[in-house]
Design a protein around this nucleic acid. Structure first.
Lengths: 143, 143
DNA sequence: GATTTACTTGTGTATATACACTTGCTAGAG
DNA sequence: CTCTAGCAAGTGTATATACACAAGTAAATC
């Protein structure tokens, strides 16, 4: 087996590196939100529903760079928890999502916890590099 | 609800951005490896077992910035598929992993497919920024 | 008006991730 | 020798992700 090729994988694989970083950050942010029984994935969806007019699951999935069916499972879970309501099927089966009262309160409580995790992160990395990396990650996800 | 705070989440959350990028890359790399019935996660583990002397699951998990128990599940799967063997418990229950003949052949076949996905990726992003981001992602994952 | 096309959502299945908890092994303290 | 501390691995459970497939709805085309 060509060990230099293996080293190349370990040192350069963009997917592995991005996954490793995402795993680490997910643990950190999940930990910060734990007092609320909320995970960062769910928090993100909550924030997007609150901040953007959702027209359909598909458009929200595109907004979040998520696979549509993955988002469906998360929405199911959030509806079960009483945080969101999913409207009836409309034009071409489209469904609109909105927060419940409970969901709004949860989001209010979660925002400072998220900010805490974000501050921790920003303290940990170089500011200039992060500003660059931020745009780069967006390109990688969407372009 | 304060919409500027929500916009802040959407535009700046490091965790969300890293996850979105990782999801996208995972889809790309998984797609490239699909002819072999291999996923990028498994490929990475395969390459690490082949390229580094593994002393234990725990040390390999650290090497990969994975949660130990997550790695356990992947190793189980790979053993079931006949790609690796897990040695008996040794010093303090440590187990050493190694590739089977089938695992080595699979890895050989997978390397060019991985390289294809990696080339596609490198064509898609700015080279200089990627060189910087590469180190940054490593820091984020391990530091 | 039937067919096609394009868009939307839902389901079955499999893998990935990780916390909480349990169990096993080794060495050192008493 | 017993107890304890520390390291290693395994299990139960829940969520996250995504492909393959099925099925509903609306508009365009024939």
């Amino acid at each position: 087996m060509d060990t230099s090729a293996l080293k190349n994988v370990y040192e350069n694989c963009a997917c592995y590196r991005a996954r490793a970083a995402a795993r680490r950050l997910t643990r950190d942010y999940d930990d910060a939100l734990k007092p609320l029984g909320l995970k960062i994935t769910q928090f993100t969806v909550l924030a997007v529903i609150a901040g953007f007019e959702s027209t359909s699951i598909t458009s929200m999935a595109n907004e979040l760079a998520m696979e549509r069916t993955s988002l469906v499972r998360t929405l199911e879970l959030m509806e079960r928890n009483g945080w969101i309501t999913m409207g009836p099927e409309g034009f071409r089966r489209e469904r609109k999502m909105s927060l419940t009262q409970q969901g709004e309160e949860l989001l209010e409580q979660a925002l400072p916890l998220w900010q805490g995790a974000q501050n921790q992160f920003e303290k940990r990395v170089d500011t200039n590099v992060w500003q660059q990396a931020k745009h780069w990650l967006l390109d990688v996800a969407f372009k």
